[in-house]
């Protein structure tokens, strides 16, 4: 296990420097919209805010591959010097990190966001997207206990969104949804009307997926327990005639995939992940989930897993 103090100092310094946990320009992480012409910069009622979570997964995976190798070694202690990277220009750090991430992985996660946009458009959702207004929510700082850092960042984000007249927000992942819906009103005094993208999807045709083998649903903890919206994705699958099967521990009692431990202890992450994978494998069905952290983690375990948006997009 890494010293949490080193991890908190590093992530806090990165967020202060670049407004994301990696210390690299957000414009380098957030490129998905370039492959999604027609969805950006158009007028609309609600802002699509990805919180940079899906886009960040290839960077998280690249970083944790190294953290995993060095955990509990004598090199782990040197992490305390990592915040010194704030003296290195962010585009240089960005170039370095870009070399460690795979292009295919970036494409894979960017494509999920394109699918979400397509689904929203087909459901006649009135939304707009501006890459410059797509901020990281700061949720990792909150989870790690860096209250001061989280509140400072959240106030920055809330102030900017309010400045642009944003009132309605569509989110794409459970962590950003929780931050904007529950934490921002409490810690910044600013409230938005926040909805996850799947709450706005309206399938026109039913029974498109008839005859398909069932999928097993892995509920993310934040959607299942904290926000209690597990039923919505199930209703969508039912509406599209896509059969699904419940696994042991689902909905409000879903099992954690171990993802939140990734930054402090990749070994602990593996231990929790292995247990959840056994539960999912018992269903014998391919897995569908709706959180980028869960998706990346389950992919790492070699499970046949895909994001809800990809599955819906294919069968819409």
């Amino acid at each position: 296990m890494y010293n949490p103090r080193d991890i908190i100092n590093l992530i806090g310094a990165n967020v202060r420097k670049s407004r994301n946990p990696f210390g690299i320009p957000s414009s380098q992480i957030n490129t998905w919209w370039r492959e999604a012409p027609g969805f950006t910069r158009r007028p609309g009622d609600a802002l699509l805010l990805t919180g940079l979570m899906y886009q960040a997964i290839p960077y998280i995976e690249a970083t944790t591959r190294y953290l995993e190798r060095l955990e509990d070694s004598r090199w782990a202690d040197y992490l305390r010097f990592a915040p010194l990277s704030r003296y290195i220009p962010s585009f240089v750090v960005g170039r370095g990190l870009a070399c460690l991430t795979s292009r295919a992985e970036k494409k894979q996660f960017n494509r999920i966001l394109v699918s979400m946009c397509r689904l929203l458009t087909q459901s006649a959702a009135d939304f707009f997207y501006h890459p410059e207004m797509d901020f990281y929510s700061g949720i990792l700082l909150y989870d790690l206990g860096d209250q001061e850092g989280f509140v400072e960042h959240a106030k920055f984000v809330a102030r900017n969104l309010k400045l642009h007249g944003v009132q309605k927000i569509i989110t794409v992942d459970p962590h950003t949804t929780y931050a904007l819906k529950e934490l921002y009103p409490k810690y910044t005094g600013v409230s938005f009307d926040v909805q996850p993208y799947f709450a706005l999807l309206r399938p026109h045709q039913v029974s498109r997926g008839n005859g398909r083998p069932p999928v097993a649903i892995h509920d993310p903890c934040f959607y299942g327990r904290y926000l209690k919206v597990s039923e919505m994705p199930r209703q969508l699958l039912t509406d599209l005639g896509l059969p699904y099967t419940e696994v042991r521990n689902c909905g409000e009692f879903t099992s954690c995939c171990g993802g939140p431990a990734e930054s402090v202890s990749p070994a602990l992450n593996r231990e929790i992940l292995d247990r959840r994978v056994a539960e999912l494998k018992a269903s014998g069905a391919p897995v569908v989930t709706f959180c980028p952290i869960c998706l990346a983690n389950l992919l790492k375990a070699g499970l046949p897993v895909e994001d809800l948006a990809s599955l819906l997009d294919r069968n819409w």
């Binding site: 790690l144 903890c221 009692f253 099992s255 954690c256 939140p260 402090v264």
Partner: peptide, 13 residues
């Protein structure tokens, strides 16, 4: 034992 606090996954079970 502060380090143990960061083992928590904040899963909410």
């Amino acid at each position: 034992q502060a380090q143990e606090l960061w083992r928590c996954l904040h899963c909410g079970l």
